[in-house]
Design a protein around this nucleic acid. Structure first.
Lengths: 220, 220, 220, 220
DNA sequence: AATGAATGAGCGTTCATTCAT
DNA sequence: TATGAATGAACGCTCATTCAT
């Protein structure tokens, strides 16, 4: 299991489209499969993630599904590659958002990210990826790339909040902040017992993170 | 999926021992199976969690395993019930630890909990439970009970750190603190890319949590 | 593909019974499967040799068949091991047959062996094994062991026919004689166009082999 | 399964070129496929003989392969038809070779034929055909035609070696000689355990066959 | 308390074949 | 000529479960 600590490599993820699906029809079927796969893993968990169920959900035959993705590993990778793009785009959007003062922007990001945990897709999909990443290289790489980009987005804003912090401190802070937020998934997520606490969590997160950033007491 | 927001019910977990195995030999075999099951789910993930593999790991026949646990669901519940005790005991120990000043005690707890994430068992077992909890009632209940007791331990200490906080604020704080720490599992855990940051994470956690507790600015 | 040029190792083939089938019932089912497998490969060829077809022929379920033979390779090996015994026994019988003069005994062996080619089992089963031996280690080993014993039987008689031959010459002769006879399988075998020539082939074989043995002009 | 005991019918094999591929490009692709098919059956055995693998080996798409050979049976027949020509040509060459005395010529043929068994193509391809011939009419016909021509070549020389033999005796002798030699394939062939005995086998074959021919004691 | 036997469903995968373009 | 899309059957294999002993 090789880990990529470097920046996300868009060129890598872009050409990971399935081998088949050169024609318009094929592209469409290909995408249909990937969406069905994502929905299935979200709805029923990875231990119910079978090619037959995906094919059924996509309303195609198993044989045809395997024409597009010659094996399961292949399909998983394609699904993750397809999935990651949406998150990368989202982070990109957060980064280049309307020029506001950094505190407002930071709070907005925290709010967006934590609120996102309430959505079923997020609540259900990510724990599957976290556990899968412990046993599957593609999932591991997916996490590395996605969270790296996520942290970069935060670093940009935090650098403005406290210009005294060096790059290593910023990285460390970003790791702490993003990881902390991920932890709430299982507690305030969709259908979770503390969902109604979401706004309070956002407030506590904003306050404590902002204090930590400004305090400057980040280990060197 | 029914949720238990109440306290852990020890009476519930105590009589969840397998139906068979009242005698000494039976108890022993029963426990052997549960430990093999836990090791398997940790090592290979829930999607590889099969009765055959457990039986093989426990060095007994499939038939015998199914004499103790007549079906898979049954075994999962028993495994989680067995597993939870160790965590509850750990929290109990943290709670009644040598009387120290509350800040020292709080920091000690944070350190113990976050350091624990480095262990393979924790890094690999918990993500499996988190994803499983989205699709299996027993796992869901397991999480409810374990994290409830976990939070109670923290509440005790935090009440001393800032007596001005009311019970609801303390609950809210405990939720925030514990959930935040869980989020680091996937990043500083065993074999994870940021493992070497563990000590820094502990320091940032202690500082920001202590500030938040003492600031008293917890949503009411 | 490792080759065994040494003597057949009976101890090796004897304990190759399937792992399952300890009870009487199990032994019976186990043997039923092996016989069905042998019949199938004979009737339909190795390219039709599927576990489903064997199970059907043995009148058991596929699942049960795979309880006895956990994978296909395993079953093939067991089938060949089971099969080889009959041939080894046959050679043993030829060897210890009623004390006759060596020429009569030699001719009898040639007659038995070549006549055997007419049987459907022989005509159809052996070409499958020959081709399989090029791609499967068990089949390769099966051939090595069987033909080695076959040659030893002949060597015993030929040594009496011409005591002047040394051991290497005898081995060489045995190889030549046995291999030559195998070659007739595809021509005078069951349903083959030259089947009616069998007796003539036997006569030519006897004459030319006997001449060769007695001429003593075997390369050293 | 109808058997052809008559002579090879060149007219039959010549027009068995694939239906498609009259033009230059088509002929070329067609041949490419047939050679890939032959290589595959040699390298991996008939049980691995699939249209997909052939297409991949020939570096064309499955669809295109099936444009040339609309089904598998069709392709097998074409492959065998294509293949037989090379053997027929070889026998023709042996027949019309530089005028020598018949014994020298006979020995040369034996040597060529037996030496040929050492080649991987021969060692691996023929056992596949022999087994296939038991289950497939095209392969059966292929064998009939090829060996018939093979025997005719030998008959020509043997007639000179012993003019006293009648046609039926010659046929019988040719059958015995050719079949005997085929039998060595599995023992002195490519990668086979007795390969180093090839020259000795050739010598024994020459001696015993020549004696048999000259003895004139061939059944009538 | 433990084993062995058997079932039936589902899995990922390969395959020959058909068809539209 | 050649490619891409799709189907349906079969393959080897793993599995949870049942049951007799």
């Amino acid at each position: 299991m090789t880990r990529l600590m470097t920046l996300a490599k868009p060129s890598r993820t872009e050409n990971s489209n399935p081998l088949r699906g050169k024609s318009g029809k094929g592209q469409q079927t290909s995408l249909l499969i990937l969406l069905a796969a994502e929905k299935l893993i979200t709805d029923q968990g990875y231990h119910n993630f079978s090619l037959r169920k995906i094919a059924e959900a996509a309303n195609i035959t198993l044989g045809n599904l395997q024409y597009y993705f010659p094996n399961k590993d292949n399909l998983i990778k394609a699904m993750l590659d397809n999935c990651i793009q949406r998150y990368l785009n989202q982070f990109e959007a957060l980064r280049h958002e309307a020029e506001q003062d950094p505190e407002t922007q930071f709070k907005a990001i925290i709010k967006v990210v934590i609120s996102d945990l309430n959505k079923k897709t997020t609540t259900y999909f990510f724990p599957e990826v976290w556990s899968l990443a412990n046993h599957n290289d593609h999932a591991d790489e997916f996490m590395d790339q996605m969270y790296e980009r996520y942290r970069l987005t935060l670093i940009d804003v935090m650098r403005q909040l406290n210009p005294a912090l060096d790059e290593e401190q910023l990285r460390r802070l970003a790791l702490f902040v993003t990881a902390s937020m991920e932890g709430h998934t299982m507690f305030i997520g969709y259908n979770k017992p503390w969902k109604k606490e979401t706004d309070n969590i956002i407030e506590m997160a904003c306050q404590s993170f902002l204090w930590l950033i400004r305090s400057g007491q980040i280990p060197k």
